[in-house]
Amino acid sequence: MQIIVCLKQVPDTTEVRINPETNTLMREGVASVINPFDMYAIEEALRIKESLGEGEVTVLSMGPPQAEASLREALSMGADKAVLLSDRAFAGADSLATAYTLAAGVAKLGEFGLVICGKQAIDGDTAQVGPSLAEQLDVPHATYVRKVQSLEDNKIVVERMTEDGYEVIELALPALITVLKDINQPRLPSLKGKMRAKKAEIPVWGKEDLDVDEKLCGLAGSPTQVVKIFTPERTRECRLIEGSAEEQAKVLASELKKII
């Protein structure tokens, strides 16, 4: 069974800082990493393959040529194959156009049993590409998966986290799931994996390689447009409460009683 993991390369937010003068993001020298949620997706795919004792894990990303580095990292963790979807025509895509292009990539990869995505990317935070991709692939999906209970007989049973607990959902394969941090602990790349990843060929598929309508890709295919970007006002003044713990607690309690 082929398991496809979709991953996104994102700026490492542990290094992103706000320029206090201009109130803008300082991205200079900020490293790019695999979106943290996608690490859990890769790990879960590897675990499923190991428990089945067969199969192939393919990692797929849409992005600029630099995103190849993230795919290589996934290969070093143990993924079998990686493909990058990269083309000027794919740039500027919103979640619908991204899912459209990814769906074309998945179609070209051939038969699959499962697609795994991270819950959301930490730069855009939309959590929309997973379910949108499921729709465009015409497969069932479950979001916020915190555990795979079983995978057999062409079906997968998962636990999906809800606001007040969880649901147990059975999906016929092929299917798509998006996973949470709670699902596993991603492994570190092995030395052997790193060596293999270094040498691996990563095909780059552009619009000519995929069965896509260019008008539905990238910026042209994105119904939504960003019209304005601004920094939220940070005029907040922190009122420090002084004194002993008792005195501090007393002042705070009386302030809180005004609010609640």
Binding site: I18, I122, V227, I229, P232
Partner: peptide
């Protein structure tokens, strides 16, 4: 970006 910027769409 984790609330560091706002976007109008």
């Amino acid at each position: 970006f984790g609330g560091n910027i706002m976007a109008t769409i």
